[in-house]
């Protein structure tokens, strides 16, 4: 049951899926021409495309910034770089919003939108306030197209650490600095937990995902663009604390998965879930376990040792490296 034949998940299930067309569709014609001709090695490693008004067009890949030249070439000379105009940004914005700013108001308020394929486009500009709440963003001055790549199978080898032999999932916390692949790992774990792995001796769990920032599932118009398994229920764009309670009440999940906890409300909701007998899989920003334990909102939770497994990620030697897996109680490295 690897879910590869599941047609409900658009395209992304195939490992050779290239996000190329989805990204090109989001760019206006002349930018498309510039980017189209890039070498495929760059396409495969591309993480972000950055557009800022009157600044060079940048591609971020493998921790490096690459300039795109006006003639379609690439390199590191800033003088040859193509300079993004305000019009480019406006046109791109129309394309990424699918010509429907009115339909995405809520997303724009949060500062990002999800496009077909689950890629996320971050927005910066001038915010318009309504009282103390952000109403919308206007005069868009920067767009960041973040290419999402589902890495199917990256968690396969680690599943035995988080699922005990008698089909019991262990509460797991993933600790990782930003940009180290924590969401990617979480997503793949959700997929494996939801599908079950007969070979490794566990059956599928009912998984509820609270996807506050549409990052885990990459939901576009209600359909998850990533393969997140057959027994997964998604609350898209829902605040974590409320979402966790909603799932417990209505969807009877065995495991709740969510990304980037940090607020006090999140912690309380997680405790509530544990009291209700639901297991938790979540992630947190941080470089080490010590650092996380010192955060005021998380300290209590860490002292209570509610997580049975702690996975620490790093980007050395490359993004997504699992530095260690610790036993939650004894803090003894298992890997």
């Amino acid at each position: 049951m690897d879910g590869s034949g599941n047609i409900n998940f658009l395209k992304k299930t195939s490992s050779d899926h290239l996000p190329r067309k989805e990204i090109l569709d989001a760019l206006p014609l002349h930018l498309r021409e510039l980017i189209q001709g890039l070498p495929s090695s760059l396409w495969n490693s591309m993480e972000e495309i950055r557009l800022r008004t009157n600044q060079p067009l940048l591609i971020h890949s493998l921790n490096k910034d690459i300039f795109v030249y006006s003639n379609g070439g690439i390199g590191s000379e800033i003088s040859k770089a193509y300079v993004v105009t305000k019009l480019d940004l406006e046109k791109t914005f129309q394309l990424v919003t699918d010509y429907s700013v009115y339909a995405l108001e809520e997303d724009i308020k949060k500062g990002f939108i999800t496009i077909r394929g689950g890629h996320r486009v971050g927005i910066s500009g001038r915010t318009v306030m309504n009282g103390s709440a952000i109403k919308t963003i206007k005069d868009i001055s920067g767009l960041n197209i973040r290419i999402s790549r589902q890495k199917i199978g990256i968690s396969d080898a680690y599943m035995e650490h988080i699922v005990a032999s008698n089909n019991i999932f262990r509460n797991t916390l993933i600790v990782s600095p930003p940009q180290c692949g924590k969401t990617t790992l979480l997503r793949d774990m959700v997929r494996n937990l939801s599908n079950g792995m007969i070979k490794r001796g566990f059956q599928g769990f009912k998984v509820g995902v609270v996807d506050e920032r549409s990052e885990i599932c990459g939901t576009y118009q209600g359909i998850p663009q990533n393969d997140i398994g057959i027994r997964t229920d998604i609350l898209d764009a829902c605040p974590k604390a409320e979402g966790i309670m909603m799932l417990i009440r209505s969807m009877s999940p065995q495991i709740i998965a969510t990304d980037e906890i940090g607020k006090l409300d999140d912690v309380l909701a997680i405790e509530e879930a544990l009291n209700a007998g639901v297991k938790v899989l979540t992630t947190v920003h941080g470089h080490s376990l010590d650092e996380v334990s010192k955060r005021p909102n998380l300290r209590k939770m860490m002292e209570e040792n509610i997580f049975e497994r702690i996975i620490i990620l790093s980007n050395q030697p490359r993004v997504g490296t699992i530095q260690s897996i610790l036993d939650g109680k004894t803090k003894v490295p298992l890997l």
């Binding site: 699918d98 010509y99 429907s100 009115y102 339909a103 118009q221």
Partner: peptide, 10 residues
Amino acid sequence: EILYLLTPLP
């Protein structure tokens, strides 16, 4: 379509 159903423009 636009104001109440929030259908994308196309």
